[in-house]
Amino acid sequence: MKIDNALLQKLENLSSLKISNEKREDVIKQLSEIVEFVENLGEMDLDNEETTFTTIAGGTPLREDIPNVNPNIIQTILANAPLSENSFFVVPKIIE
């Protein structure tokens, strides 16, 4: 599977990244190489295998519905936030 510039653009949009123009060719080449490598999985006979998403058995633990807040956490975060005002995080608007 070859990665091309159009696919790279799509991936950039989905992941909010931008590869600079000088690096694009290299990145496309590297990604293509890696994708081609991982395609070796096609050589394995996996039709009858289960999928293993985790090695932990059982169901997800269920937490009791009891409130608990540590105000120190938000104080530290707001104090060091890139931009905050009156306890809000501030971000620029979307411009179409």
């Binding site: 999985l41 394995m44 289960e50 293993t52 998403f53 090695t55």
Partner: peptide, 10 residues
């Protein structure tokens, strides 16, 4: 496919 391979490896 990778998650299936993982099962195989395990």
């Amino acid at each position: 496919k990778a998650q299936k391979a993982r099962h195989f490896i395990k």
